[in-house]
Amino acid sequence: MMQDVKNRSVEKNSRRLFRNDMIFIVVLLLLVTAFGLWIYLVRGEGDRVVVTIDGKEIGTYSLAEDVTVEIRTGLQNEELNLLVIKDGKAYVETATCPDGICSEHKPISREGESIVCLPHKVVITVYAENEKDAPDIVV
């Protein structure tokens, strides 16, 4: 009898936790989706990309002109990220970093999008007109 009551309360509790889990997950995903949509709507196509190495700006390239840029890093400039701008989009064609995350990233063209190479500390970010001096804090 005691065991029965105990089992029932354990079951009730686990059902409560399961419901809370569901609510938590749904709310979390809704918030993030709303955040993503908001960013997507607020931000349009950019017109140029800015390349930084370890936070220092090394160049700005217009998305309107097709161009290929060798981004060199490392002590003897032995590391490479090959930035390609084509048809208004920028992407990393090849890279010597161990993870290859930057070269797998999809082409970027919308304001604020970026490709990051953590091993080389290279960040490529899309900007739009007059936005350069006041980048939004996204998080």
């Binding site: 993030v32 993503g36 930084t52 970026s114 990051v116 500390k121 960040v123 970010t125 980048p135 804090i137």
Partner: peptide, 17 residues
């Protein structure tokens, strides 16, 4: 913080899913 870029915040949307 290390790279001094706020733009990485975009990753968080995908990373949350």
């Amino acid at each position: 913080w290390l790279l001094g870029t706020a733009e990485l915040g975009y990753y968080l949307i995908v990373l949350t899913f």
